Amino acid sequence: MEITINNKNHQFNQSCSIAEMIAVMLPGEVKGIAVAVNQTIITKSDWPHHFLKDGDRVTLIKATQGG
Rank of each mutant, 00 (worst) to 15 (best):
V35N: 02
K53M: 00
V37H: 00
K62G: 11
Q39K: 13
A36E: 09
I18M: 01
F51C: 15
Q65L: 12
N7Y: 13
V35H: 02
M21G: 07
P48L: 04
L52T: 00
M25V: 05
I18H: 01
T59D: 15
I42E: 03
M1D: 01
L52Y: 02
H10C: 12
L60P: 15
R57T: 02
A63I: 02
I42V: 10
H10A: 13
D46T: 07
V24G: 14
I22C: 14
L26H: 13
V30S: 12
I33S: 06
F12W: 13
V37K: 01
I33F: 04
I61K: 09
T59G: 13
A36D: 02
V37Q: 00
G55I: 03
M1E: 01
K44A: 03
G55R: 09
I42K: 07
M21I: 03
L60Y: 13
L60W: 12
I18C: 02
K62F: 14
I42N: 03
A34Y: 06
L60F: 12
T64C: 12
K44T: 01
I42H: 05
P27R: 11
A36K: 10
V37P: 01
S15F: 06
I3H: 02
P48C: 07
Q11H: 15
T64R: 12
Q39G: 03
N6S: 04
L26V: 12
E29D: 10
K31E: 11
N7G: 05
V24E: 15
N38R: 08
K31S: 11
I61H: 12
T64K: 12
T4H: 08
G28H: 05
M21A: 09
P27S: 09
D46V: 04
A34H: 06
F12E: 10
T40Q: 10
L52N: 03
W47S: 03
T40F: 05
Q11W: 13
V37I: 07
F12G: 11
P48F: 05
G67S: 06
D54I: 00
V35A: 04
E2C: 03
D56N: 10
H50L: 11
S17K: 01
Q11V: 12
